[in-house]
Design a binder for these strands. Structure first.
Lengths: 299, 299
DNA sequence: TGGATGTTATACAGGCAGTACAACAAACAA
DNA sequence: TTGTTTGTTGTACTGCCTGTATAACATCCA
């Protein structure tokens, strides 16, 4: 990435943590980082896209650091787990990521929402896998529930601890307290046999990068179908049908999907706007974007 | 409140739940409710103020309904508690309050933030008092922590349940599951003796409780509850229970509370002095006095 | 009948996001 | 060297938003 672009991201990050995302105007970013409007829109299509790249860089680093803590250690060692959680929390706090996340979830930007939700899903997935390390494969059925509840317990404890006037508890204490609770809870839940969400559902939520998950397949299939129905009356019917088929085929069954071809196809489809409902076409675009972002992450 | 103003609030509420708070412009509200800009700014100083009054009306109703569920019931009955929680969640869902809340917490409006945070504190406080009802005074030291964690568990379970494709779990199941967990957890935590936040801090967070309103309601209801427990062994038990219920009902839900009746009831209660802890009864008297002094002030 | 109060319509100032475009700068190839 | 490409700048513009101001109109009540 460009040095200059990097610099803009850094300055924007500072502004976001100082004044909040919403409360930072693009003009602020321009002034603060000393670039012109034209350049900004050359780098990013919007403030949201800037935020996405910002969060991506932070989290890529975090996941790497977090996994390094595990190298050469016993994965069932609870102290290692606690260290990893603390790393998470400290990163979050240092970058004020939580408030940024919350802020973003409000915005009516589908892309951004999708992106954040996937990030949370990845954390949940990681937590689930670590719980299996720690508590054992035989407790698997209840461990997704427990991972979900652990996030709730931890966040809530942190939130109210922050309000306490003279906060006498360190992050370490809160994490240890929360971990203590979840350890007992895992025992209790696994004995009771209760289950809210079977862990298999994780695969639906978190499409395997190279092998798109069934949920993704279904969504794509459904979207394409809806679009196909809408072009019934068009005179260039077959052309658009072929384009849609191509996109679907390339995403689902090609080993190395060619991004440029798919995007070109989308562009052509857009050219026939009146035939399509705007919303559905945007859905397709979103799906394609999600698909390729996952490809690029893993490579 | 003005009928017209009420109507504006109603229309705005609909727009907010449909399109989100941020995404609804004042112009939208003007068009949708058919008033002019001048009138709007005559009613409210800003969109934020409108939101505050909106949330206030909803929550006033909710707290009343929620407390009514308890009248004449055993306060330690877990099923009553579950019903109250469900009422909360259903109201939240029906009004899309949660997203509104989250949305608001972002905005850089200090008033609004304060208002919402106090609302959350009130819920937490209520939860804490209910936990004392349910689990007993002797577990008090850990019950604020448990109330906090219960909120985390419940919200997180709901959040991820909502993502499940074919949500086969009802709200009732989720609440029951969460309550089951917290019950076991209370036992565990109270035995371990761990504590994160001492319950005394609640008083620091909450605004002064002298002024009536929701805080007053909670105090009243809790005082009455404590008294009820103390008369368990009395031979004229039912009579005193009825008296207490009457006082609570008259203060909270009557449009024109009859002072003479309430005071007569207090006198009768005093007649059975040995059964009551002096201090608690005086609390009740003080609350009643405060209540009527406020009534007389405003009339 | 006349004043108080509430309401409307409209114009206006100031701020924001995003687009468009002409002019400039630096790198690079022939 | 010259011409081209590519990135950058500054500025102007559209369109949407909030919040203020005000003249004209409506309604109620004494």
């Amino acid at each position: 990435m460009n040095d200059r672009k990097q610099h803009v991201i850094k300055m924007a990050h500072q502004l976001f943590t100082d004044k909040g995302f919403q409360n930072t105007s693009i003009q602020d970013i321009l002034d603060y980082s000393g670039i012109s409007k034209g350049t900004f829109y050359n780098y990013f299509s919007s403030k949201n896209e800037l935020l996405i790249t910002l969060i991506k860089t932070i989290y890529k680093q975090l996941e790497q650091d977090r996994n390094e803590l595990l190298i050469g250690q016993d994965p069932s060692d609870i102290d290692v787990f606690i260290k990893q959680i603390e790393l998470h929390l400290n990163t979050n706090r240092a970058n004020k990521l939580i408030s940024l996340f919350e802020e973003v979830l409000i915005l009516n930007d589908a892309d951004l929402k999708q992106f954040i939700k996937q990030g949370q899903m990845r954390i949940l997935h990681w937590l689930f896998l670590r719980f299996i390390d720690i508590f054992g494969e035989n407790k698997r059925p209840c461990l997704l529930d427990c991972a979900i509840m652990f996030m709730g317990i931890l966040h809530q404890n942190l939130k109210y601890q922050a309000i306490v006037p003279e906060s006498n508890a360190s992050i370490n204490q809160i994490v240890r307290y929360s971990v203590e609770r979840i350890m007992k809870m895992v025992e209790e839940v696994s004995q009771s046999g209760d289950q809210l969400i079977p862990p298999e559902l994780l695969d639906h939520w978190l499409p395997d990068s190279k092998n798109p998950g069934p949920a993704f397949q279904q969504q794509l299939y459904h979207t394409v179908l809806t679009l196909k129905k809408q072009i019934k009356n068009n005179n260039e019917e077959s052309k658009y049908l072929d384009l849609l088929d191509f996109v679907q085929e390339e995403l689902l069954n090609s080993k190395e999907p060619r991004k440029f071809l798919v995007e070109s196809a989308l562009l052509s489809l857009k050219g026939c706007e009146p035939s399509f409902e705007q919303e559905i076409l945007q859905n397709l675009e979103r799906l394609v974007a999600v698909f390729f972002s996952q490809i690029e992450e893993t490579s």
